[in-house]
Design a protein around this nucleic acid. Structure first.
Length: 493
RNA sequence: GCUCCAGUGGUGUAGCCCGGCCAAUCAUGCGGGCCUUUCGAGCCCGCGACUCGGGUUCAAAUCCCGACUGGAGCACCA
């Protein structure tokens, strides 16, 4: 692995040490491909390959090819083609060329014929179980002995659909130490209609055939793939050898896991079908659209993936790392608002009405907001009787009594230093009058209802805000049916 | 079970190929302090790691062997 990449180079730039990911064997421009199976939208796991490909293409100059690998009609979700392109665009990845494998069937057929003609492939009609039994003992099946002419004839019959359950196998090494490499299949018959080509084809290439053929034909120079493909690379090497093609650099990175999150398209899809998740952008999922909805910026994902890099060891990534990067990106533009969850009413006795004006951002000029105080506010903290608190930016109060969901307090003083001396807590608050009904959907998909201050109604959908002392959230929807209700998705603290 | 890959603080990452400059980098996290009327940002201080055991060597995180641990693959999926 390490001979294929130079994952780290220390360069002196402006006196600063700078780490840089690098590829080996770069001669001029690079051509790289991102090759997902269109069975769903992109998730964090995909973003690693996508980002790294994009990074190297931009670093060295070259082309990013999006190749949709849809040669298994059973594993194609029609909407996924478009979702994948949207996701890449959101990540700010420029697709230089798009290739859809189901449109290239004739190319695969042609190359298969050539292999048969060269005597490197044969049609096998053995029962799969029977073949496996022989293969595991390193014994070739009878089909392997067939002549080129016979094989070509049987191949034609496969294409005509007048043969049942036949496959084309590549002649490799029937005693190869890895049994799965021994005469592995390269074409199979499948009568499930394809979402794009319908029933036009019945014979489909397997990835270990279509991948090397396309990698060569598209002029790919470097391939980044998960290490679950190591054996496939070994298999595909035979194809390159038989055609006498130069092999691109194949680089295998470790498996990415992120704590507590399923990164499996099929599992997510099952959960959606079962109604467990509300869709591909359910906040519990690791899809890019779920993260987008929660206010995770694409730059944060990009930087995360670059930080993780391409080392062959597995990675158990922590959300905290991603959140920290996102917080840094989002903080400077996030307007501040007060939001109280599980609201309680607080009646302040003896206080004069007063309007306070607060900044939308503590360090930058993003405008001001006003909170008119008239004696009654919502709060979310559990207060204790006889203790002093400060309504942030307003005044100090002392709690007198608590009756159910209503707290009664008395005005104490103005100066926050008094509060400091008494070691009281500062709490945030929302005037009851004109409070905006707000729901924050947390990362577990739970709805947390509450109220936000009145100026929150001015936010735009898609804005990322910070609810002070609560966390960052993205404004998802403004519902207006009689009363305004704003739905937000929680990002992180 | 077999084949292959990998193991640096809680997490990610640098260093490993070309042994000494590594009593190990940076970030995040955590603890404390300053600042701030946010549990955000900023600043300061601190905590915390070379899986283990052998070997080679004057010298090993770096090379070799073994163990252990983790992962991947062992499909007519990608």
């Amino acid at each position: 692995m390490l001979e294929e990449i130079a994952p780290e180079m220390l360069t002196e730039e402006g006196g600063e040490r700078k780490r840089e990911l690098a590829l080996r064997n770069v001669r001029g421009n690079v051509v790289m491909r991102f090759a997902p199976n269109p069975s769903g939208p992109l998730h964090l796991g995909h973003s690693r390959a996508a980002v790294l490909n994009d990074y190297f293409v931009k670093k060295y100059g070259g082309k990013f090819i999006l190749r949709l690998e849809d040669t298994d009609p059973k594993r194609v979700l029609p909407e996924a083609y478009e979702m994948i392109e949207e996701d890449l665009e959101w990540l700010n990845i420029e697709v230089g060329e798009k290739v859809i494998q189901s449109e290239r069937m004739e190319i695969y057929y042609h190359h298969c014929e050539r292999l048969i003609e060269m005597g490197h492939a044969y049609v096998c009609q053995c029962d799969p179980e029977e073949f496996r039994r022989l293969k595991n003992q390193g014994i070739p099946c009878r089909c392997r002995e067939r002549s080129v002419e016979e094989n070509l004839e049987l191949w034609e019959r496969m294409l005509d659909n007048s043969l049942e359950g036949a496959v084309v196998r590549l002649k490799t090494d029937i005693k190869h130490k890895n049994p799965s490499v021994r005469d592995f299949p390269i074409f199979r018959m499948e009568d499930t209609p394809h979402p794009r080509t319908g029933d036009r084809y019945i014979v489909y290439p397997l990835m270990n055939f279509s991948v090397p053929v396309d990698d060569h034909l598209l002029g790919i120079t470097h391939v980044l793939r998960g290490k679950d493909h190591i054996v496939n690379t070994e298999k595909q090497r035979y194809i390159f050898q038989y055609f006498q093609w130069e092999m691109p650099e194949y680089i295998h990175y470790g498996i990415l896991k992120i704590e507590g999150t399923v990164l499996s398209t099929s599992k997510m899809y099952q959960g959606i079908l079962k109604g467990e998740y509300r869709g591909w952008d359910d906040p519990r999922l690791g899809t890019l659209r779920a993260l987008r909805r929660r206010g995770i910026r694409p730059e944060a994902i990009y930087r995360s993936m670059l930080e993780i890099g391409i080392k062959p060891a597995d990675v158990k990534y922590s959300w905290e790392n991603l959140y920290a990067i996102n917080r840094e990106i989002v903080d400077k533009d996030a307007k501040r608002f007060f939001f109280v969850e599980n609201p309680k009413r607080l009646k302040v006795l003896g206080a004069e009405p007063k309007t306070v004006y607060l900044r939308m951002h503590p360090d930058r000029d993003l405008g001001t907001r006003e909170l008119p105080f008239e004696g009654e506010v919502y709060i979310s903290d559990d207060l204790e009787v006889n203790k002093m608190y400060r309504l942030m930016e307003l005044c100090n109060i002392v709690v007198e009594k608590i009756e159910g969901d209503v707290v009664y307090a008395r005005y104490h003083s103005e100066d926050f230093r008094i509060l400091r001396r008494k070691r009281g807590k500062i709490i945030h608050w929302v005037p009851v009058k004109d409070a905006v009904k707000t729901v924050v959907v947390d990362t577990e998909g739970r709805e947390r209802p509450g109220f936000a201050e009145k100026d929150f109604r001015k936010v735009d959908v898609d804005e990322i805000v910070q609810f002070e002392r609560y966390g960052f959230a993205r404004v998802d929807e403004k519902r207006e049916n009689g009363e305004l209700e704003i739905i937000c998705y929680f990002a992180h603290k």
